[in-house]
Amino acid sequence: MTKSELIAKLAERYPQLVAKDAELAVKTMLDAMARSLAQGQRIEIRGFGSFDLNYRPPRVGRNPKSGTKVSVPEKFVPHFKAGKELRERVDSEA
C-alpha cells in the first residue's frame, strides 16, 4: 500500500469529506510525525506502536569501494517498535 492508496481508502471511508481533505490529513499527520522525531520527541500510538530515536556511537567505517578508513560520527536513527495489537494481528493472519 502506498501513500496515495492510503489516501484513497480514507477518502472512501469518509464520503462526507472532500478527497482533498483526506490527502491533507495524511500529509499533516506524516509531517507532524517526522518533525516530532527529528526534534527528539518520541511518538506513541496505542494499538499501533511507538517511534523512538536510537543512538549510534561514533565508529571507524570503511569506504567499501576503496577500502580506506573513514570516521563515522555519532548519530541518532529512527526506530519503530510494533504495539501489541499490531504484533498480534500481523502474526495471527500470517
Binding site: 500500500m1 492510503l6 481508502k9 480514507l10 495524511v26 494499538g47 499501533f48
Partner: peptide, 9 residues
Amino acid sequence: AFFDEIRSA
C-alpha cells in the same frame, strides 16, 4: 482510521 488502514494492510 489512518492507523487502522496501515494496520489492516
